[in-house]
Computed example of a mutant assay.
Amino acid sequence: MNKYLKRYAQNFDYPLFFTVLLLSLFGLVMIYSSSMMVAIVLEDEAPDYFYARQVKNLIVAFLAFAVAAFFPYKHYANKNIMLLLTVVLVVLFTWVKVKGIGGELGSQSWIKVPGLGSFQPSEYAKLFIILYFSAAFYRKAQKYTFEKLQPTEIFYPILLWILVVACVAFETDLGAVIILCGIAISVVAASGIPFKTFWKFFGVLGAFGGIILAILFTLKGDILTDSRIGRIKSYINPFDYEDGSGHQVVNGYYAIGGGGLEGRGLGQSIQKLGYLPEPQTDFIMAIIMEELGIWGVLIVLGGLGFIIYRGFSIALRTKDPLARMIAAGIASWIGFQSFINLGGVTGLIPLTGVTLPFISYGGTSIIMLSLAMGILVNVSMFERVERKKTIS
């Protein structure tokens, strides 16, 4: 054990850890700044209500990071571990279906955990798909060469992915569905599977995805609620719907434009004073731009960009297929979620309600992301150890 800890300390990925820590602390500051008015007026709580809750979330997240960072990633390919992760997923989705709670858009995406608050199963599903797909393809690679691997030979991972996407879609968390699809494709692409076989696999996913959408629209006709249709319309020209579905986007624009290059100053946002709804969640980047200008943007984009780069860099360097798929999956997760959030804030794509990694307020998000970062740090450590062995 002492030998393992010594080797771990020598090969710990400090740049990745401190980048995650910096982003999380920066997000904590911005949550406090952006949520004061919401806490006082809407929640009838102290100004630091959301800040205090996020501090507790970060403590749990740090513990999750530490556990994942010390747990050897190779164990995720173990059948018993895979079964345990699957059982947890089934329990969470059953729970959210039976006793789930939702929001104004008709979603049923959260469950109440006694003593811990609310939990969003779709966040767990993102990490689950990364680990399960990586383990499944890794185990198949032990029996077959990827050149001979066909989509029919990985029927169960495909079936499980379909069920997960269907459950998340029925919640209905459409932003998470997009991320789950991107993660699955990224993990498969990183597996080393031949290009022709990859496209066959992609075709299978696309076909089943189309079936899921058809079933979803048939059985859950209320998925396109007035709110969601309004988001699509307001995406084209939000100023035509400024008093309705375009309200959040338009006030996000005002925040971004009002900050200019230098920003109004920390704590000096105008849009957070009741104009921009829930500024501490998916629209926190608009407040960052308004208060800190280009410097806030550089901190967020620089930190997220480094994490994504680090993940793909680890994936490209390692010779272990399992490590490569896990690292690529985690990096893709951060990349897709960041793009969807920032794209919605800036009007590049329609809003989906996806949070900004490490920055937005939210317990489930920061805890699951911290777990993923702990796993990535562990993968990085083992990759460094193997590289040193090769050099020596």
Score class of each variant (00 low, 15 high):
120 Q>D: 11
180 L>K: 06
49 Y>P: 10
45 E>M: 12
208 F>N: 07
92 L>P: 06
318 T>F: 04
342 L>P: 07
3 K>P: 00
34 S>A: 15
105 L>N: 14
231 R>C: 05
136 A>C: 07
90 V>Q: 05
337 Q>G: 04
339 F>T: 05
301 L>W: 08
369 L>I: 09
5 L>F: 14
96 V>S: 10
207 A>N: 01
143 K>R: 10
222 D>T: 06
359 I>D: 07
145 T>Q: 09
202 F>G: 10
269 S>F: 10
371 L>Y: 01
129 I>N: 09
88 V>T: 08
147 E>F: 03
153 E>C: 00
297 V>F: 10
197 T>L: 08
73 Y>T: 00
259 G>H: 08
349 I>A: 02
313 S>M: 12
9 A>E: 02
138 Y>M: 02
292 L>R: 05
180 L>N: 09
320 D>N: 15
357 P>W: 03
239 F>N: 07
296 G>V: 00
260 G>D: 05
183 I>C: 03
126 K>Q: 06
141 A>L: 14
361 Y>K: 01
116 L>M: 14
372 A>C: 15
70 F>W: 13
148 K>P: 03
23 L>A: 04
86 T>S: 15
97 K>Y: 15
125 A>I: 10
271 Q>V: 03
119 F>K: 10
328 A>E: 09
286 A>Y: 07
109 S>A: 15
235 Y>H: 13
243 D>K: 13
18 F>Y: 13
268 Q>G: 00
289 M>S: 11
372 A>F: 02
87 V>E: 03
271 Q>M: 10
368 M>Q: 13
8 Y>Q: 09
89 L>W: 12
115 G>C: 08
376 L>W: 08
334 I>P: 04
172 T>R: 15
206 G>N: 08
256 I>K: 03
18 F>H: 03
261 L>N: 04
55 V>F: 07
383 E>H: 02
182 G>E: 05
130 I>N: 03
288 I>E: 05
239 F>I: 14
48 D>Y: 12
211 I>K: 10
17 F>V: 03
159 L>C: 04
304 L>C: 06
247 H>K: 04
176 A>E: 07
241 Y>P: 05
235 Y>V: 12
289 M>A: 13
298 L>D: 03
317 R>M: 15
173 D>H: 06
87 V>Q: 04
61 A>H: 08
17 F>M: 07
97 K>Q: 14
3 K>A: 15
211 I>Y: 13
219 L>Y: 13
365 S>E: 10
58 L>M: 13
344 G>K: 02
220 K>Y: 06
248 Q>A: 06
15 P>C: 13
95 W>H: 11
128 F>A: 06
57 N>R: 03
163 L>D: 02
311 G>L: 02
298 L>G: 04
253 Y>E: 01
207 A>G: 15
